[in-house]
């Protein structure tokens, strides 16, 4: 109906241009990244909850000291990097 009023220059489906060109190539790597970060976050997430619960009523100095302990620095960095 509308075909007469508007001139369509290319009636080929966009799929035609994409078909046969293969995948976008990053799928498997992205999938694995998601699985690995997810598995890492199982442990890191539980650890983070425990860390925060330990700091419930902590004042500034003790909170800062806890976060500055070497293992906590390392795990916290890993946590934040993995989250994002």
């Amino acid at each position: 109906m509308n075909a007469k009023s508007s001139v369509v220059k290319d009636r080929r489906h966009p799929l035609k241009a994409a078909r046969g060109l293969g995948s976008a190539k990053y799928g498997v790597g992205h999938w694995w990244t998601q699985r690995v970060t997810a598995a890492a976050l199982v442990g890191l997430g539980i650890w983070f909850v425990i860390l925060v619960l330990g700091l419930l009523h902590a004042d500034y100095a003790s909170a800062r000291a806890a976060v500055a302990r070497p293992w906590n620095v390392l795990l916290l960095l890993a946590f934040v990097l993995t989250v994002f």
């Binding site: 500034y60 909170a63 934040v80 989250v83």
Partner: peptide, 20 residues
Amino acid sequence: GSLVVVGGLLALAAGEEQFD
């Protein structure tokens, strides 16, 4: 929520006033 976590860490790094 992760943004708030980062906000908390930044506040901790910024000083006692911000952390409070």
